Simulated assay, not measured.
Amino acid sequence: MSLTLQDIAWHQAVGRLIESLDRPGFWIALVRLLEQYVPFDSWVVLLFSSGRPQVFAECPGAGGGPDPLFQDYLRGLFQLDPFYIASRERHVGGLFRLADVAPECFEQTDYYQRYFRLNVVADEVQLNVPLECERTLCLSLGSKQPFTPDQLALLGLIQPWVAGLMRQRLAFEQELMASPPPAAPAWQEKLEAVGLQVESTLTTRELEVGKLMLSGCSSKEIARKLAISAETVKVHRKHIYSKLGIKSQSELFSLFLKAQEA
């Protein structure tokens, strides 16, 4: 089978990327190569673990500086990110689309309306490379338009090449790889720090249910994830609202945000 000019160009570009593996501009070079084949509007390279995400590289914000919404993400909103949750539940590699990992009610959440819709806008795909110690190296691509089936098929075709390059790059990211990730924010411990007088401490299970609610999981999805009944989920939700003195999921999200900032 003969090679096309596009095939030759791809192999030449990958060869140049291999030569630049040890250079500071590697991640930008990789992203620019992908842009030649699939259009996207934002990107970030992250390391997911049990702590806060660690950033290898990211696209600049609208003014050329750090994106304030992305800083909110790193402070704590990542805990509601469907991709982060999926990477912790299933430590596997591959190409994942938002539709593959988003909970049933994701678009109805405050997280989607107040962060995702503004920062990512329409669609997101993520290429995951599983590492030891339950860490995952991720390349996320965000788009203002849904990715088409042809674009997703192309990303799936080149995914082994990109994943291999990402893994090889880690040999030159020793400083970040060796540093422990910052601890994830402890929601329970910070509730009083924001001036909230709770009736009593939320249990571990109530905290789990609360985060799954905020991430967009329906009662049935929460029940399946936690191996409890849907009725038990409703009881936990009632207890959460009562203990925190709130009446809606939007109020719960606001408390969650305040706790991350404390």
Rank of each mutant, 00 (worst) to 15 (best):
P130A: 09
A99W: 03
S140H: 07
C138M: 04
T148N: 15
C138P: 05
P185R: 00
A102I: 11
E173F: 03
P160I: 05
E231N: 14
E134V: 04
L131H: 01
A193F: 12
E134Q: 11
E221C: 12
P146Y: 13
C133A: 14
Q168N: 08
N128V: 07
P180C: 09
S219R: 04
V129G: 08
C217P: 06
R114Y: 13
T109I: 06
C105T: 10
E104F: 10
E189R: 12
V194Y: 00
Q145S: 15
G164L: 13
A122H: 12
S215E: 08
Q151D: 10
A163E: 15
E173T: 10
T148S: 15
G94P: 04
V92P: 11
T109P: 03
T232I: 09
Y112E: 04
Q197W: 05
R224F: 06
P181H: 02
E231Q: 12
M166L: 15
L131N: 03
E231H: 10
L176Y: 01
E206M: 00
V129P: 14
N119F: 10
Q168R: 05
I222Y: 00
F96P: 09
I158M: 08
Q113M: 13
Q113L: 15
Y111F: 14
L152S: 10
S179K: 13
D123A: 03
M213C: 11
I158A: 04
L127N: 02
C217Y: 11
S229E: 07
L155M: 15
L191Y: 00
L196Y: 01
S219K: 08
A223E: 02
W161D: 10
S218G: 09
P180R: 11
E175Y: 07
G94Q: 06
F116K: 10
A153N: 09
I222P: 00
Q145T: 15
E124I: 02
E132N: 05
L157E: 12
V120D: 00
A178K: 14
A223W: 02
T109G: 07
V209N: 00
F116D: 02
A99D: 10
I222W: 00
S229V: 06
R114W: 10
F106H: 06
Y111A: 07
V129N: 08
Q159R: 13
F116A: 14
L131F: 03
Y115E: 02
L137V: 11
V101N: 09
F147G: 10
E231P: 02
K220E: 15
T203L: 01
E208H: 09
C105N: 13
A153L: 12
L170T: 02
H91E: 09
L226G: 04
R224I: 07
C217G: 06
S143C: 15
W161H: 06
K220S: 14
I158T: 02
E199N: 03
F106C: 03
P103Y: 12
